[in-house]
Design a protein around this nucleic acid. Structure first.
Lengths: 144, 144
DNA sequence: TATTGTTATACTCTATAACTATA
DNA sequence: TATAGTTATAGAGTATAACAATA
């Protein structure tokens, strides 16, 4: 494992990444709020719009304790965006799945987020390719 | 304002940025937790280690309501990491400033974070310059 | 026995509104 | 009257521990 670098260029890039992270996070929360959702609720709804998941699976994706998921799904369910279904294969398991309205909300949320990420529009196709490759290299093999 | 793009390349870059954001955030929280600090406490301590700030100024930086800052600074103060000082120029104002121990903790926290950001070590100097310029372009003039 | 989901509890962060002491 | 900081309150996310139902 390499030693972290402290040269001015590295520090400048670190600072820029910090700015990207802060802005992205802020805009994510705002997009969620426009749909009267908290960030956590929006993340869960987004996950479930890809595929229904057991409560435990949601906790793994969110990297939080399973007990927290109960409340988040409760609130989404109370708003009619998500429903709990039994798992035919294991009666202990409850599968959380988006309702029709939940899927629609998730879709609109995704559009909001694309809008939030619009800064990418400032780059040409070639520049996006370079950026993609640099980010991939930065993130390492774990992403591949 | 340009229309958001949806071509596969753009979506791939958006996805990669999302991954960077998630990893950065997660590692930030973990680094804070290693010092028994919450993310919000670590952010405030980091801010104050650059310069003492009035409570109102902290709220502006955190983009939250001033009433929240009271509790966060209370907890940092209870741990001896921060102190409230009067502002000679305006007796309504309280300046929050790090103690000696607070500065030391902020410094160790910064080191943890550099370690967390180590992925940058995978890039050469030239690549970092390219990444820096692309990020700057992405973020636009507002950062300059 | 082990696992899934839940409940109960406590702490932190968050926004809103009302309060105080200054300006 | 306006502003800085605080308090009170309520909602949400978080972790921990204990529980019922099922495997």
């Amino acid at each position: 494992m390499a030693t972290p670098r402290r040269d001015p260029l590295t520090l400048e890039v670190v600072e820029l990444i910090g700015t990207v992270v802060a802005r992205y996070y802020e805009e994510y929360e705002q997009a969620a709020a426009r749909h009267s959702l908290t960030g956590a609720q929006a993340r869960v709804l987004g996950l479930l719009s890809l595929e229904p998941l057991p409560m435990r699976g949601i906790a793994r994706k969110l990297k939080c304790e399973p007990s927290n998921v109960t409340g988040i799904v409760d609130r989404l369910e109370a708003r009619g965006l998500v429903e709990r279904r039994p798992d035919p294969a294991d009666r202990r398991v409850k599968l959380a799945a988006p309702t029709e309205e939940g899927r629609a909300t998730a879709s609109r949320l995704r559009d909001s987020l694309d809008f939030a990420r619009e800064p990418l529009a400032a780059l040409s196709d070639e520049e996006r390719e370079v950026l993609r490759d640099l980010l991939k290299r930065m993130l390492g093999e774990s992403v591949l």
